[in-house]
Structures are given as structure tokens and as C-alpha cells.
Design a protein around this nucleic acid. Structure first.
Ligand code: NAD
Ligand code: NAD
Lengths: 211, 211
DNA sequence: ATAACAGCGTTATACTTTTCACAATTATAG
DNA sequence: CTATAATTGTGAAAAGTATAACGCTGTTAT
């Protein structure tokens, strides 16, 4: 069965909400509560859970711990996924800081940059390697996911090197569409697009609300 | 007429592709060329253009300059939109550097932080103000769009202050859903979600391609 | 000229995703 | 133990998106 992309996105959010509840000692949660927190409908939440098979109980809801574990297993594999980060500039460093120690089975295990000054350093617990060493490091660290944070002109060649070295999932921060084979999944995170989208709909909403 | 969110996203991409072509001296482009570059079908491209009314010509395609101008006007208003950035930490600074000088009518005009050491400084051409001055600065700079890059615990209160001060469009980098009135448009940029989505589909694709 | 072709604009069709609605299930109170 | 109320799981309907199809327009070649 093919899980819709939107469902996967929401699952990621539900997982964090469940995590937060666990921290607060909340042992169970209803679909309508998750719905309110996530900003969706309760049907949507239950429908999304059909894809992961997590079961709730009428009048009791979903067990927070089970829910978190269920989503976790569904999203990320049972054995931890290694992640590589290419391009340790302004954004790369921020990303590294952000993910450091955050997600137990989705860890940035190696960084790559072409700047000789950065190679060999350890930033936020992560070693920076030369891009020449990409293939061997990815193999030895069992890395199959990568984050691209290099200047746009180098994004495509970086993607190709990564794929060559066995990567089949990429988060791309460079503002260019990547040309990749069909068995590689790419998510483009595009700040310009986000801002322009907001600019557009903010304006539309103003017009609507003024009528 | 309501433009689908996905269409708006693609338009942002087409605009940049048109921009790039202009730089390369390419005066016109066919829908199937844009389609290939954007990774969509040519029908999709022509369909998307129906929303902005941009016209092409059989056998000639779309005039690159007209196309760029048309999308520009559709996405962002004719009079430049002012943008505020709240939270000048690792991510905030990277974002500021990224947008600086990039987009003529979508400019970050004011930054806000609560750290006294940062207030008063000018970073990438942008003055950092105290959050106390938010309402007055937003009014005087005619800002109605904001980027939130404060720690998650402060995201909701920051959103409320911004909305209070007249903002009706927000790009939210904090990994929490914001609770906002219906006339405010929010786009959540969620790195964790992106990475988990990639982890999920990368794994699925591997399984599929192994069959 | 005009035939042959290429590509746009749009309508119709197919597909995907969300919402609705309700039977089945479980907790709780009397 | 039974009635009541609350909440789940899911089929069916609706809404939202993407693709296909095709008439029309403009270009090129003969
Ligand atoms: N800064 C932001 O907030 C932001 C936002 C959205 C997108 N982006 C995009 O992310 C990318 C990086 O942005 P940045 O602001 O960090 O830029 P940056 O210039 O600060 O950093 C780029 C880094 O990549 C390294 N690099 C260059 N070529 C390389 C190569 N071929 N292989 C490996 N490393 C290489 C450089 O040495 C540098 O460390 C750019 O494509 C940018 O458009 C940045
Ligand atoms: N660093 C990343 O790559 C990254 C990625 C995704 C999301 N985020 C999110 O973006 C936000 C910022 O991340 P960061 O890494 O820049 O954090 P950071 O700690 O480096 O920076 C936070 C900044 O916000 C300021 N601040 C704190 N409270 C404030 C308030 N109430 N009003 C105004 N300013 C305030 C701080 O003074 C600081 O300058 C966080 O919510 C984080 O989860 C960061």
C-alpha cells in the first residue's frame, strides 16, 4: 500500500506530539485531541493511523507510548539510519546544531565540505571529511540518506556523487530541482518558495477578509 | 478563483527557472522544457499558467521576461512586501544571509530578538530591534509578513505578538504547530519532518527496487 | 499558397486525498 | 448487569489535483 506523502508528514508531527505528552506523563490521547494540536480533523488522524496499523480503543484513545513507537518504526527503519551532511556553511552548521542529539535513530554521522580549512575538524560531534572520501565513509558508516547544503551550482554534482556512493534519499536545501533516478527520493526544502507562498496567500486572505 | 497551494509552489519554481533563462539570454521557453526542468508534466505547466493568465504562443512558447513578470505580480503584490524576522540565532542569521539582496519586492526590513547584545546591531544590512518595538516598527515599515526562528517554547507567543501587530502571513521554522486565526496564513518549514519523510520513502524505494 | 507539424489553451477524464457518516466497541454510571 | 455516552475503524461520498485529449493557432518547408 502506498502511503500518501501528506500522511507521512503528519505522522512525523503526531510522533513529536506523542513524545511531548509522554514527557508530560500523559499515557493516552484521543484522535480529536491530536487533531486539535496538529490542526487537522479527527477523521484525518484516524485515517492516517490506518496506514501504520496502530490501534486505539474506543473511549480510551491511543496509548501514547505505543503510538510513538508505532510511528517511529513506520517512519524510520528498526536499525538506525545514518545521515550525511554535505556543505558546512551558514545553513549546514545550523542544521548540524539542530539535529545534534535530537533523533536517536536518524543521526548525522558524517559531514563533507570542499573547503580544506574545514576538513578534519569536528563540529557538533561530527567529523568533517573531504568530498574525495565520500564513497568510503558512506560505506563504512552505512549511510544511505544525505542532506545537501552546498551552493546551488554544486547541488547537482553533489547529488550524483552521493547517489553513486549508495544514497537513495536526499533532503535538498539548494534552490534547484535535482535530476535523480527514480529510485532516489528527494525532498526539496525551498525557503524562497515558502516565503513567496506566504506572501501570496497572506495577500489573498487580506482581500477575502476585507470583503 | 482559488489557486491550489501546489500550483503556487510550482509557480515560484517556474519564476526562478525563467529568471535563470533570462540571465542566460534565452528569450522564450516551451511548456515541455519548463516541465522537464521542474520535474512535472507539460500539461501541468500549462494548467498552472491558466491561474495567472500568462499567454504563450503556439510554436514559440512563452516569453521568458513576460513569464517572470507575470508570476512575480501574481505571487507578490505590485508594491513590495516588507518582511520581519524574529529570532537571530543560528538559523535566523543563515536565513538573513540567504535572503539578503535576493528578492527585490520581498525584503527583510526588520529583525527582532530578545537578546540585549543583539539589539541595535545591523546584520546583513538589517537592523535588530527589541521585541518591545515590534508593533511600532511593523507599522512604520509596513510589514505584514514574518519569519519565526525563535526556540519552540516562544513560537506561539511570538506569533501572537506578530498578529497583534498586523502580520497575516508567517513562515514558521519552530517545530510546533501555531494556533492562529483563520485570516492568517502559516507555512511550517519543518526540518525534522523533511528528514523523516526522506528516511521513510528512501527505505520504501529500496524495498520496491529490490523486488 | 498550402500541407505538415508543433505547441498552446481548455475541456474532459482519471486519480488522490479528505471528509462524512455510522456500525462496532469500550468505559462508566446507575 | 444494563443503559448511556464516547470514541474507534472504515466504507462511501465529496473535494481537490493531475493527466490526457484535442481543437485551434501559428510556424516552417515545399
Ligand atoms: N543560508 C540559508 O538560510 C539558506 C536557505 C535556503 C537555502 N540555502 C541554500 O543552501 C545552500 C548553502 O547555503 P549557505 O548559506 O550555507 O551557503 P555557504 O556559502 O555559507 O556554505 C556553502 C558551503 O558549501 C561548501 N561547498 C561548496 N562547494 C562544495 C562542494 N562542491 N562540495 C562540498 N562542499 C562544498 C562551502 O565550502 C561552504 O562551506 C545554498 O545552496 C543555499 O542556496 C541556504
Ligand atoms: N538551526 C536549525 O537549523 C533549525 C532547523 C529547524 C528548525 N529550527 C528552529 O528554529 C528556531 C531557532 O533555531 P536556532 O538554531 O536559530 O536557535 P538559536 O538558539 O540559535 O537562536 C534562537 C534565537 O532566538 C532568540 N529568542 C529567544 N526567545 C526569543 C523571543 N521570545 N523573542 C525574540 N527572540 C527570541 C534568541 O536570543 C536567539 O538569538 C528553533 O525553534 C529551532 O527549533 C532550527
Amino acid at each position: 500500500m502506498v502511503t500518501p506523502e501528506k500522511t507521512v508528514e503528519r505522522l512525523s508531527l503526531y510522533r513529536r506530539l506523542a513524545e511531548e505528552m509522554l514527557r508530560e506523563g500523559k499515557m493516552s490521547v484521543f484522535s480529536h485531541q491530536l487533531a486539535e494540536m496538529a490542526g487537522v480533523t479527527s477523521s484525518q488522524v484516524r485515517r492516517d493511523f490506518m496506514f501504520i496499523g496502530t490501534q486505539g480503543r474506543a473511549n480510551t484513545g491511543y496509548n501514547t507510548k505505543e503510538l510513538k513507537a508505532g510511528i517511529d518504526q513506520f517512519l524510520v527503519s528498526h536499525e538506525p539510519d545514518g545521515v550525511a551532511l554535505v556543505g558546512i556553511g551558514n545553513l549546514g552548521r545550523a542544521v548540524l546544531a539542530f539535529f545534534h542529539g535530537r533523533r536517536p535513530n536518524l543521526i548525522i554521522k558524517a559531514c563533507f565540505d570542499k573547503d580544506p580549512d574545514k576538513i578534519g575538524r569536528i563540529i557538533h560531534g561530527c567529523r568533517v571529511y573531504s568530498i574525495e572520501d565520500m564513497a568510503s565513509v558512506l560505506l563504512s558508516e552505512k549511510i544511505n540518506i544525505a542532506i545537501i547544503a552546498v551552493p546551488r551550482a554544486f547541488a547537482q554534482e553533489t547529488a550524483e556523487k552521493l547517489i553513486q556512493a549508495g544514497v537513495n534519499g536526499i533532503v535538498n536545501f539548494a534552490p534547484v530541482p535535482l535530476n535523480v533516478p527514480g529510485n532516489v527520493y528527494v525532498d526539496n526544502v525551498d525557503f524562497t518558495m515558502s516565503l513567496e507562498k506566504v506572501a501570496h496567500f497572506a495577500r489573498k486572505q487580506k482581500i477575502v477578509s476585507e470583503i
